[in-house]
Every structure is written in structure tokens, then in C-alpha cells.
Design a binder for these strands. Structure first.
Lengths: 170, 170
DNA sequence: GTTTATGCAAACGATTTGCAGTGGT
DNA sequence: ACCACTGCAAATCGTTTGCATAAAC
């Protein structure tokens, strides 16, 4: 059930070129449909995002790219991320407190997050049960589900014995 | 299963004095335990919050109080809300995009929210099933649950036939 | 060629913080 | 009296926007 766990942000890793080009197709179609353009910056960002295995903030992307000697304007990043969300490549994941966290969801198993209130470690878990539950809950209200966000705050195994931290869900 | 629905923010309503004084006790104890003080501003805010039946933002509180001719500094509000969250009277609820939403949870049934992506209507629903589910999911990871946040985005009954809006979960 | 995108820097808006004065305890 | 709290205004910080230039189509 546990899919993985994470700590660092937006660390670029080896890319599956196959996946990249499939994602690029998705993006290309999405853009064409609305008369938008597939610029080199958008391709760069798409690559960077698919390469990141973790949750990241817009700023992380900027830094990560700079370290690779690639310069992309901050505004471009902020303007591009919503596009990628909209075409289903990216999703906004859990929120720390009042800032945007993203993770790519292209080809990855749907999941949600547990976040340790002490060490901030993030543990992912399969969300299929929640997916069923959300339908069951929405139906009697005549509500049509588009998406959900589910996050659990608490103490991870390692922090359970350490000093307590009361803050429930920042 | 459906507990209610909401639209406007922080509209003061008639208060159950009994509830107010119980809540005040909770707050008083919480403060005393850490050498903090029960000021008149904190009492004012507690009252205002208990009186609000809806989800609200810090700014809503400020405005609502001003309308009643009560002046409380914005900073005081921002400094007080986390205290109330910490002592369990308040909770941070769903987040629009990157701002803080609160609702009081003193004596109210635990619930989560469905939010219509078109009209922003909020529908509350009982969260007991989610509470069981979160334990089931946390246990194998050795994770101790403190709290969760669950929100469903989609189309409410009324908007289902109106113009579509793609944005999944802002 | 036309139109959308980029990069920069300025603008924004929510939240936070420093500080002098006020008020619980 | 002491120390925390308030209010104000200034400071932060993530995010958005305006505009001149560059790049897709």
C-alpha cells in the first residue's frame, strides 16, 4: 500500500525519454487546441518536472534549473505550472502552509500523503480506497467529483518517541 | 450524512452562552498552562468565532468586528488564530488558493468539505468513514494520526448543467 | 506577419515582525 | 512590578502583472 517516501525537493534524476515524449505529446495537443505555443521554455520545464521524483515548489524548480545552468524566468514558471496542471501532467499536492506544492502525476499511481508534524517527512499511500469513498460521499449530495485532496498529519515511526509537537495540521 | 451547506462568511449569529463559557474555560486553561494571558481581545475573538457559523478568513473576522464597532488589530487576529487552533477550538479548513480558511470545531460534528469548482459553494459531510480509513492507511506505515484534511472538488447539483469549468482543485 | 511567450522589474496581497505603549497576573 | 499582549506601520515573501522584446506558428 505504501508507495514510497520522500524528503528533498525537485532533485533531477535520469529521465525515461519515452515518458517525456508521451508527456510532450499531451502538452502539445493541449496547447494546440487553444492556440497556444510549445516554446522551448515549456519543454524545459516539462522535462525538469518529469525528472523530479518529489514534491516541489515553484522556487525549487527555478533553483534546480539554475544549478544546471538553465535560466528560466520566475514568471514563466508561475505561468507554466497551471498549464501543466490543466493538462493533467502536474497536480497540486499537499500544501505546507499557504504555498503551492506540486508533483507530477504523469504515469504515476494515484496517491495521497501523510506528513510528519515533527520532521516534515512525507509518506505516500495508495488512494484507491479514498477514491471509492469520495464517490460514496458525493453521490447523495448530487455532487460530481472532479478531484480530491487528502492529507494526514501525524507522527512518523521515527519521531513517535522524540519530543512532541502539538501543531495539528499547520 | 449531509450536515449542511454554506456560502457567506463570518456572519455573527446568536450565541449559546453555555458554549461560550465552556470554550473560554478551554482557552483559559490552555493559556494558563503556558503562562499566557486571557486578554479582552482574545475573549472578543473567541466570541466572534463561536458566533460565526461559517468558514472564514482572518480578514472576515476583522470586518465583521468592525461592523459591530469593535476594533481589533489585524496583527492580533493573526496572532490569536493559531492559539485557538492549538487548543482545539478552531481548525484550519479547506484552502481556496493559498490563503487561510478557518472554522470553529467546538462542539460541532467532525466533517469535511466538498467545494463546487464553479460556484464555490461548500457542502459539508460527515467524516467518520474517513476517520476510520485514515487509521487503516496510517497503521502499516507506523504513522500516528493527529489530524487530516480531506476536500473534494467537483460540480454541485445546480452547476452540473451550467457552463463547464475545468480547473480541478485550484 | 501575427500573435503568444518571455524576462524583468514593479505591483500585489496575505501574513509577519519590530517596537513603544498597555494591561493581565 | 513583571512580562505578555496590543496596535500600528514597516517588512516579508510568494505570486501576479505590465510592458518591451523575442520566438512560435
Amino acid at each position: 500500500m505504501n508507495v514510497g517516501s520522500a524528503k528533498d525537493n525537485a532533485v533531477p534524476t535520469k529521465l525515461d525519454e519515452q515518458t517525456v515524449s508521451r508527456a510532450e505529446d499531451v502538452l502539445r495537443n493541449y496547447l494546440r487546441e487553444r492556440g497556444l505555443k510549445l516554446t522551448s521554455e515549456r519543454q524545459t520545464l516539462l522535462r525538469a518536472i518529469l525528472g523530479s521524483q518529489e514534491h516541489f515548489e515553484p522556487e525549487d524548480l527555478l533553483v534546480s534549473l539554475r544549478q544546471q545552468g538553465i535560466r528560466v524566468g520566475k514568471a514563466t514558471i508561475y505561468r507554466t505550472l497551471p498549464l501543466l496542471v490543466d493538462c493533467g501532467i502536474l497536480r497540486r499536492a499537499f500544501l505546507g502552509q499557504n504555498r503551492a506544492y506540486y508533483e507530477h502525476c504523469f504515469g504515476s499511481m494515484p496517491h495521497d500523503h501523510m506528513i510528519c508534524t515533527i520532521c516534515s517527512r512525507v509518506i505516500e499511500f495508495d488512494s484507491s480506497e479514498i477514491r471509492q469513498l469520495r464517490e460514496r460521499v458525493a453521490e447523495p449530495a448530487g455532487f460530481t467529483v472532479q478531484s480530491h485532496r487528502f492529507q494526514i498529519a501525524g507522527l512518523c515511526r521515527e519521531c513517535k518517541t522524540g519530543p512532541q509537537n502539538p501543531s495539528p495540521m499547520a
